[in-house]
Design a protein around this nucleic acid. Sequence first.
DNA 1: ACATTTCAAAAAATGATTGACAGCATAAAA
DNA 2: TTTTATGCTGTCAATCATTTTTTGAAATGT
Lengths: 144, 144
Amino acid sequence: MDDISSILKEKGLKVTPQRLAIINMLKNTKEHPSAETIYKTLSSDFPTMSLATVYKTLEMLKSIGLVQELNVGEGSFRYDANVNSHPHLICYGCNRVDDLYDSALDDLLGRVSKYTDYLLMDQKLYFYGYCPDCKKKVTNHDHP
Amino acid sequence: MDDISSILKEKGLKVTPQRLAIINMLKNTKEHPSAETIYKTLSSDFPTMSLATVYKTLEMLKSIGLVQELNVGEGSFRYDANVNSHPHLICYGCNRVDDLYDSALDDLLGRVSKYTDYLLMDQKLYFYGYCPDCKKKVTNHDHP
DNA sequence: ACATTTCAAAAAATGATTGACAGCATAAAA
DNA sequence: TTTTATGCTGTCAATCATTTTTTGAAATGT
């Protein structure tokens, strides 16, 4: 009985191979895959699993706080099993999404709270540019 | 001849009533409307204009740097005629989107650059919580 | 004036996501 | 053990946001 199975059971949710496969894939990747990417990646092991199941499972995992949904500006969402609200880096060249670890952003929410009457609870920080691989190729193109 | 008309003409783009209406609406609102909202708002004055025209105009305005696109985490984009990359506040209660002016975030891009090998060019910062109106009503609900 | 080009607007298509429903598997109740 | 209930999966259609293609009107050249 691993961690995820017991969390699902506690919530009265069924533990199915598809569900375990999706969350395990998310836990074990540093990419930030879309539903479509998750579906394609798992389709070799689960050839009968449908895309709708992926969407429904992601919705369920989001609602119980096991994954977070990212909107980096594409036409679709990406998903991350690391649910603390850390900043992300998005490459204009290859569209990869990386995590950013930066203590300069610690307690940003607390600092920003002083400037607004909102009751702040969460943040999403996206930084855009060129990743180490792609910036070599960049000369003086226009940037999006 | 106002400002926007001359900008469009300089770029070799035609000045049409629809285009002027869309950008003027964006300039004169503090909301951050979606394409759909823009369409509905203007449809009383322009009953024949289609939603596709709104999208094409927004795409054009984005490409010449007159508006920016926001992805606050919904399934659709919102648009802002204020094109400097300032942070936004999103209310969990009423879904409004406000601008945030906070000097604590000045040169965040420069500071973050030291922590990554990315060549950074832009940022999008979103803070989530309850606006002054909605926070009165909040007790101990779950938060999204 | 006529032909040609341009380009905005409308119509149609696409891609992402969700909803409805039937069948299946598991678990609870009898 | 049988019955019953619950809820998950997969199929397929629907919906929503957005993009592409087509159409038509105005602008430009001859």
